[in-house]
Design a binder for these strands. Structure first.
Lengths: 213, 213
DNA sequence: GGGGTCATGTAATAGGTTACATGATTCT
DNA sequence: AGAATCATGTAACCTATTACATGACCCC
């Protein structure tokens, strides 16, 4: 079970990971995270950053080294990570890696209610999803190729993993589509009857394909 | 892009899916959802249900048919789905199925910061995760075997999908572990040096394996 | 001179979960 | 007799995001 942490927001972990390199001010943390594409992995809302930083300080995971000011710009507060902060970071990452968490992807929710769509409509939507997945995959590959050689693989593990999962999802959809399209899927009649009943009761059109309203 | 809905909580969708069968009162919705294992797919907090039901009513997706009372028990309000409610439900499911959403599994976050753990420690934690995944998979299989034959496959799609993804995750981890253990993974020296530097700077023990504190 | 980006922070809001409050009925 | 489950609902709370507010500096 994931333990309750003094600072629960994953953005807090991201902050710790930047400041462990060397002390820096909040804005620089954002830039570092953005530059490394972490704003996509975790998702960074700049507005939240200052709140999270304050929370980390309150929890004793970071503290103020100094404040400096360049010209008449706003004063910048430089934070460094504390020993407790490093320990928290390591412990947190260990937990994230070692303990599978029950994830609830939206797609799973969709599938669990897919029965309300007829088989033909579902098939059409799955084809759309497949196309979208392939596009996302291609875009990601282009991006990764961009920093191939420059960034060590060590820092691209999440991408490798995500691609593997995306491929598995696509493969599952393809296999399922084949079943649907060939008519091998069981209980198709029962399924169609169910959908038709709902459609009748609420005066909806009986859809054959996946036409959008 | 996922559209903003009047009732955004997925529990709202679950409620619509029960009430589309026939009118019922909130407590019965919970039982139905639980009985079908939907409390795990989506995750139901009974406390939230009454709020969500009220929101659905305010949005015009369900309305009150009647209230009845058995003995001196609390009065039960029976809700039915409206035509707008059915339309909303179908539209929502369509979206969930057709549009891939950027998901942020915890494991991905862990991987994206895994560099702060050394290769040996990471390997050990991944072995732990693998074991946990296998156990979860086995438990799920036992459960699904339980209602094999009784429940049509149509209502087990989420499980099939989830299993496929879990297997893919396990496969990826195994492949990565092999690389780590055989020493084929690139930049191992750089990696170890990085970790050692942090350990030195903050007076942490240099870990070789994945020993827990 | 104007747009971008550097740089910080607060207050309001939204969203959902938890805790609390209540009590009847049914099963063991 | 006591536990479990039926059955509802409200209020407090927590947490995170958004909107707002401010202004300097730099490049074209």
């Amino acid at each position: 079970m994931a333990k309750r942490r003094k600072v629960g927001n994953l953005l807090g972990l991201a902050v710790l990971s930047t400041v462990v390199e060397r002390p820096m001010h909040p804005y620089e943390m954002t830039s570092k995270l953005r530059e490394r594409g972490k704003e996509q992995d975790l998702d960074i809302k700049i507005g939240s950053l200052y709140t999270v930083v304050r929370n980390l300080e309150k929890a004793g995971f970071i503290d103020v080294v100094e404040t400096d000011r360049v010209g008449a710009r706003p004063e910048r507060t430089i934070y460094q990570v504390t020993v407790a902060g490093v320990a928290e970071m390591v412990d947190w990452v260990r937990e994230l890696v070692a303990e599978p968490q029950p994830e609830r992807p939206k797609f799973k929710a969709g599938l669990s209610l897919a029965a309300v769509l007829g088989p033909e409509q579902l098939a059409e939507l799955l084809r759309q999803r497949l196309a979208a997945l392939e596009e996302i995959g291609a875009a990601r590959r282009r991006q990764v190729d961009g920093y191939a050689g420059k960034v060590p693989r060590l820092f691209l593990l999440e991408d490798e993993f995500e691609s593997a999962i995306r491929d598995a999802e696509a493969a599952w959809i393809r296999a399922f589509l084949e079943e649907l399209e060939s008519g091998d899927f069981p209980d198709l009649e029962m399924w169609r009857a169910m959908v038709a009943q709902i459609a009748d009761r609420y005066g909806l059109p009986h859809e054959r394909g996946g036409e959008r309203p």
